[in-house]
Design a protein around this nucleic acid. Structure first.
Length: 403
RNA sequence: GGAGGGUUCGCAUAGUGGUCUAGUGCGCUCGCUUGGAAAGCGAGUUUGCCGCAAGGCAUCACAGGUUCGAAUCCUGUACCCUCCGCCA
């Protein structure tokens, strides 16, 4: 949610930002509805004051008269404010000024490459070929039991998963992240508050009988955990490291990455999430990115960092960086990490504030998130980068003690 | 799944139609007092919106309804607790 006051005072910047993100929303209509809404609000407020006075004086006749007028105005206001609310909920977060303008993912910018791409004295295999001979992944039987875009992890892949999780938690706890395993279900208002329901709703699994949603990332459950709360300033930044299964319908990706476990409906992920003061949000975003790079460097995996352009930011993010790992078996980079600065977009919807000590006022906290490890893709990355001539995998040193 | 009880300003509570602009205790903040502290005394202490301000409006879980007037009465929903059933 954006601040309606900001929109009123910065109409041009709002329209520019919305357009840069590739959204088409009528800002004039929003301002028009807002004006009508405020006018009605004032009239209702004044009438309420009169009504109170009449009630104190036991003026039944006048009270009745006001009541009729009030109910008319109130039903009028209800229609207007519902329309306004609907439009406000469709507005995406605005990009930060420093984010490069671009229409889609083809215009993202490579900030740097890091690590050394492995050189093999044998033809590199892709992870599916390796997994088949090792017995690590069974996507075929998954098709039988659940359908496409699922996979069974077996044997070494399972040991690798738990090693990655434990390594990530050990490192993040040292940095002050609170470890957390959240519920994977969320109520509609929580999912809506995190900004995942008013846009591409089809991406989210919904359990109709219980009216609950399955999370696509623990970010959603961690943010919603603190809805309607007020932090004290010294609690911030408040950092969580969450582990959960993640569920995605992959509604818009028919035919894309259909083989293997690169793009599946269910995967496990360790996720970082921060609540921060507005003035610290950019710094916090860089910190989350540095954590991601630290994790990748520890595993000695080759990767590159992308600055995401405005058109690829998505709904919530004001700025975003992705990390793509090099996959020698496929001779290409693939996304493994993403970190977003969502500013006050989610906290406005979820009513998450902190008490500013200087002013004594309650201000919206800023929220940020970033991937620590998306396990499935990390398994793929390790398999392809650490493969040996005999088809076995040489586990990264830092993981040895966990396996 | 069944039966019952509950949700009030940080916490604990009072409040069964107008005197509630919600009382009291605890906690917290400030002041007086003191060499300093405690105690005592006094003042303050929900949140949000509108307004330069004075002030106004809303807010007693949430949403409706009854009434000139609702924390209070009615309906629905959510959540919590107790008991029964089921259960890793």
């Amino acid at each position: 949610m954006l601040d309606i006051k900001y929109i009123r005072e910065n109409k041009n910047d709002t329209e520019k930002g919305v357009k840069a993100k590739g959204f088409d929303i009528d800002v004039d209509l929003i301002l028009n509805l807002d004006e009508q809404n405020r006018k009605l609000e004032k009239e209702i407020e004044d009438l309420n004051a009169e009504r109170k006075k009449a009630a104190d004086k036991k003026d039944v006749e006048k009270g009745k008269e006001i009541k009729v007028k009030l109910s008319e105005l109130e039903s009028e206001k209800k229609i207007i404010s519902e329309k306004l609310d609907l439009l406000m909920r469709k507005l995406p977060n605005l990009p930060l000024a420093e984010v490069p303008i671009g229409k889609d993912e083809t215009e993202n910018i490579v900030l740097r490459e890091a690590g050394n791409k492995p050189k093999f004295d044998f033809p590199a295999k892709d992870y599916m070929a390796l997994a088949e001979s090792l017995g690590w992944i069974d996507a075929e039987r998954a098709g039988k039991a659940v359908g496409s875009r699922f996979g069974y992890l077996l044997n070494g892949a399972v040991r690798l998963e738990f090693a990655l999780v434990r390594f990530a938690f050990d490192m993040l706890e040292k940095e002050g992240f609170i470890p957390i395993v959240p519920p994977v279900f969320l109520k509609p208002e929580a999912m809506r508050g995190m900004g995942y329901l008013d846009y591409n709703e089809d991406e989210v699994y919904h359990l109709e009988k219980d009216d609950l949603y399955l999370i696509g990332t623990s970010e959603q459950a961690i943010g919603a955990m603190r809805m309607n709360e007020i932090f004290s300033e010294k609690q911030l930044p408040l950092r969580y490291a969450g582990f959960s299964s993640c569920f995605r319908r992959e509604a818009g990706s028919y035919g894309k990455d259909t083989k293997g476990i690169l793009r599946v409906h269910q995967f496990d992920k360790v996720e970082m999430f921060s609540f921060a003061r507005p003035e610290d949000a950019k710094k916090e975003h860089e910190f989350l990115l540095s954590m991601e790079e630290k994790l990748m460097k520890a595993l000695e995996l080759p990767y590159r960092v992308l600055q995401i352009c405005t058109g690829d930011l998505g709904v919530q993010a004001a700025n975003k960086y992705d990390i793509e790992v090099w996959l020698p078996g496929q001779n290409q980079y693939r996304e493994t990490h993403s970190t977003s600065n969502d500013t006050d977009f989610q906290s406005r919807r979820l009513n998450i504030k902190y008490k500013n000590e200087k002013t004594g006022k309650n201000m919206y906290a800023h929220t940020l998130n970033g991937t620590a490890f998306a396990i499935g893709r990390m398994i793929i990355a390790i398999m392809e980068n650490c493969q040996q001539k005999d088809g076995t995998i040489k586990i990264p040193k830092v993981l040895e003690k966990y396996m």
